[in-house]
Structures are given as structure tokens and as C-alpha cells.
Design a protein around this nucleic acid. Sequence first.
DNA 1: CGAGCAGTTAGACGATGTCCAGAACGCGAC
DNA 2: GTCGCGTTCTGGACATCGTCTAACTGCTCG
Lengths: 135, 135
Amino acid sequence: PDSVAILQQHGIQPSAQRVAVADYVLQTLEHPSADLVWSRVKARVPYISRATVYNTLNLFVSKGLLRALTLAEDSVVFDPNVERHHHLVDEESGTIHDIAWDKVQVCNIEALTGFEIHDYQVVMRGVRKGVRHKP
Amino acid sequence: PDSVAILQQHGIQPSAQRVAVADYVLQTLEHPSADLVWSRVKARVPYISRATVYNTLNLFVSKGLLRALTLAEDSVVFDPNVERHHHLVDEESGTIHDIAWDKVQVCNIEALTGFEIHDYQVVMRGVRKGVRHKP
DNA sequence: CGAGCAGTTAGACGATGTCCAGAACGCGAC
DNA sequence: GTCGCGTTCTGGACATCGTCTAACTGCTCG
């Protein structure tokens, strides 16, 4: 897809650095941390600075292009999937997997009193099936 | 309750520092970060060091006395409630509230293929009802 | 040309969390 | 008691994450 067009549609000036970040982060499935985005983008655009990557990621989040997730220890990760969905954390590798919204259902959320729920998701932890554990 | 007895039941030597940490962290409802635990405990035992608090909290987690949660930005917090339950993050204050396990139900978790789910919970974000927003 | 503005840059900074070497402690043996 | 040994505690160094600032670049408009 055309990163430049996407940025413009969201009211973001498409500078060279922003396009470079978008080209990677809007396509990836690896739920990268900010510093991982930095190193990935640096591989193609070596002169980009760390501050720019952080600024750009925060800008993308505020414009709704990305979601920031705080699921596992150490660091926020970014998810280009901004639709509602759930998450599964692989306890062995730390990898995060998206789980489609309609794969599981949550009931009685509306019955909670005292709070106005703006958003919710199921967070699961587990391991790949068939992986052997040490005896 | 008797912190000394609880520590012993979990196979932890009850040193003065560990008891001091336990006295606070096993009773609290405020979901403290490690550094908050440090300052709370220092108020009663001023000579305790930061490293000891971190070591003690990690020890308690590995022994099943506490759960470490990574829900909101910045820092892991600790929860003495080790029963299954859900969490609600107040988006205005950042406060975390425990939600009883049977208040909401999650269906079809078992139907997920490819993974062995060890644990899951619903994470909600919202605000206290009746709180006015700026117009 | 040059003033102004948006974007970028490098590095300083504060906060979080881990690690290490040495000091202090507790406890049993003598 | 006191000796010796293993455990615990301590303070500081260290690495990482994320933010901030001040200076620099490059573009547009007059």
C-alpha cells in the first residue's frame, strides 16, 4: 500500500522519515517495540534518529494509525491493527499474536456498575501446542 | 494477618525486611509499583534498600504470594490477589481495580487452536461513572 | 534574500529494573 | 561465648526505556 497516501489521509505531513517508519510499522506483524522499529528502519534509512522514531510513533498513535499496547514486561509495543481484537502472549518467546474479535465472546460487561467502559479485550497467555517441555 | 506465618508457609525465611514488605504489600489494594512499595515500606523501616525491595517482590512473585501485572504504561505493579480475576484501568487516574472473576464471562476460549492457554483475563479501560468531561 | 515554521537531530535527563562485591546477619558447632 | 559458614542486605554501578531541549536543516512565502 501507499504509505504517503495513508499519512495524508490522516492529516500527517509525509516527510521522508515518517514514510520510512510507516513503510515498516504499518505492515509488520511482529508487534515491535519503539527501539525495534528504530533498528528496522535504520537498516533502510541509516541517518534517522531515535527521537524522530519515538516522535513519529507517538504521532501515529494520536492520529489513530497505530495502537500502543502494554501487555508484556519491558516496553510498549505497537500494533498496526487498530480494529478491536484480543491478544495472546506466547510465554516462551514473548511473541504477541492478534486474536480476531469474534473468536471469543465476553458477556455481562454492560452489567458492571460504577464505570463507563470505553474499551476492553481478552489477554491470554500460553504456549504453542505440541511444544515439548523439559521433563 | 500474620505475615511471618504466611512467609513460612510459602518456604520463605521471614527476615525483618521481608516481613516489613509483606506487611504492606499483602494487604494493599493500591496495586503499587516496586518503587511505591519501597517508599511505603521506608516510611516504617527507613533503612531498607531499594535492591532488597526489588529482590523481595520478585521472590514473592516466584513463590506465588503476589502477581506481577503489566497493564498500564510505565512500570509493573503488584497485586496480592492471586485468585483469577479481571482488571479495569481508570483512564483518568491510572488506578487499577480488581473485577471479580464471575462478573464477566469469556466464551469459546477452548475453541482456539494452535495454542495451549494457561491463563487469561479481561482488561477493561474506562472512567468512573458520573465524572464530568470538559465540554 | 531572509523571516518563519515544521521537522529532525544528538545528547542530556529521569525513571525503571538488574547486577555485583562487600558488609552484616543468623545460626549451629564447638 | 565465639568461631565459621551460608543467607540476606546494602549501596552503587550499570543497562534500558522514554521524554525533553536546544540547535540545525530545509522549505515556503513575502
